[in-house]
């Protein structure tokens, strides 16, 4: 899957997963802070992303993930190989 495709899929996932009281536009540079997510919300979001994208976040490195683009990049790097 191309990185751009992954990012649009991650954005679609975020729109579904995050219940915003005051919706902001979600793009690659949108940070968790922009979305008003606290640490518990972020942990829950990454947990749901694991199931959605078939990946597993390394919790040690997950602190580096601060925006939507970071999730997409992580997914692109760790996406499960599918049979050709």
């Amino acid at each position: 899957m191309e990185t751009a495709d992954i990012e649009s899929k991650v954005i679609a996932f975020i729109k579904e997963a995050v219940h915003q009281e005051n919706p902001v536009e979600i793009k690659g540079t949108t940070s968790f802070n922009d979305l008003g997510l606290d640490s518990l919300d972020i942990a829950q979001l990454l947990f749901e992303a694991e199931d959605a994208f078939g990946i597993s976040f390394d919790l040690e490195k997950a602190t580096d993930i601060t925006c939507i683009g970071d999730i997409a990049a992580y997914v692109a790097k760790h996406q499960p190989r599918t049979a050709a």
Binding site: L40, A43, Q44, L46, F47, E50, S56
Partner: peptide, 8 residues
């Protein structure tokens, strides 16, 4: 994986 809200 363990759901983050398991404890709270």
């Amino acid at each position: 994986s363990t759901p983050p809200f398991t404890v709270p």
